[in-house]
Computed example of a mutant assay.
Amino acid sequence: MKTFILGGGCFWCLDAVYQKTKGVSSVVSGYTGGHFPDPDYYSVCSGMTGHAEVVAVTFDEDVIPQETVLDMFFALHDPTTLNRQGYDVGTQYRSSMFYMTDTERALFEEAIERNQTLWTAPIVTEVTRVGTFYPAEDFHQDYYGKNPDAGYCHVIINPKLAKARKYYSRWLTA
């Protein structure tokens, strides 16, 4: 099993897609990349902690290749906008990849290069060594699965799920 820690805007969006991805055994929404100990949602949203909203995606490489997990990440958000995804603005929504080893860092950098061909503007995804990962509050875990009728899910998450199904249907469950 392998775990990637990825930030691409609101963690609910990445969580929703990876929860439905074959070979993914766990998705944990959380915070990392900042300087504030034991952050919570409200402190992270203040933009003062330095943390990003992220997901820790644990998957089985025998089921889904790591390159596919990373390519999905680049398809699910706009990695060319600095500190913003749609209406979510601030450093906590930055496009980010947090590596644990130099090998993983190189893999992330290769994924950026590979996916740059899909974007006209330069990818600004931050690649940083991971610090402490803080799981988000229970309310944020599997948000889409628990709240599929919420407005945010209809307006923001459902289009991302539709895009994932269009390009990665082989890897997604119902």
Rank of each mutant, 00 (worst) to 15 (best):
A162I: 02
C153N: 09
T32N: 10
T32D: 09
E113D: 14
R129P: 13
Q116Y: 05
H140T: 08
P148V: 07
P122S: 11
H77C: 05
S96V: 10
T120S: 15
V155Y: 12
F139S: 08
M48C: 12
Q116N: 02
A136S: 13
T101R: 05
P65C: 08
A164R: 11
I64K: 11
P148I: 06
G47P: 10
F98C: 10
I112S: 00
D40M: 07
A75W: 14
D149F: 11
G47I: 09
D60I: 11
S46W: 08
D78H: 07
G90Q: 07
N83Y: 03
F139A: 12
Q141W: 13
C45I: 06
G50T: 11
A162K: 14
T125M: 03
T117F: 07
F108S: 00
S95Q: 01
Y41I: 05
E109T: 05
M72P: 10
T117D: 13
I156A: 13
R129H: 14
F74A: 09
Y87M: 13
E109L: 14
V130W: 02
I156Q: 09
N147K: 13
K163E: 15
P79D: 07
N158G: 02
A121H: 06
Q116W: 05
L161G: 09
D102T: 11
A150V: 09
Y99A: 06
D71W: 02
A75K: 15
A56I: 06
T58K: 13
V89N: 00
E53S: 03
M72E: 07
E53M: 04
T125N: 01
L76M: 14
I64D: 06
D138Y: 12
K146M: 09
T101V: 03
V155G: 00
F139G: 03
D38W: 03
L70M: 05
E110R: 15
G86F: 07
Y152W: 05
V69L: 08
K160P: 03
E110W: 02
E53H: 09
H51W: 13
P122F: 02
E61P: 08
Q66G: 15
T91S: 13
I123R: 03
I157G: 10
R129D: 00
E126K: 03
I64M: 09
L76V: 09
E137Q: 04
A136R: 05
T58I: 11
T32W: 08
M48L: 15
G34K: 06
Q85F: 01
D60M: 08
N115Y: 09
E109M: 12
D142H: 13
F139H: 15
A121F: 08
I112P: 00
I64W: 11
V55Y: 01
S43E: 15
F108N: 07
F36D: 11
N83F: 04
I157R: 02
E126F: 01
I157N: 04
V124K: 01
T68P: 06
Q92G: 02
E126Q: 13
D88R: 05
H35C: 06
V127T: 02
G47K: 12
C153H: 10
I157A: 10
Y134A: 02
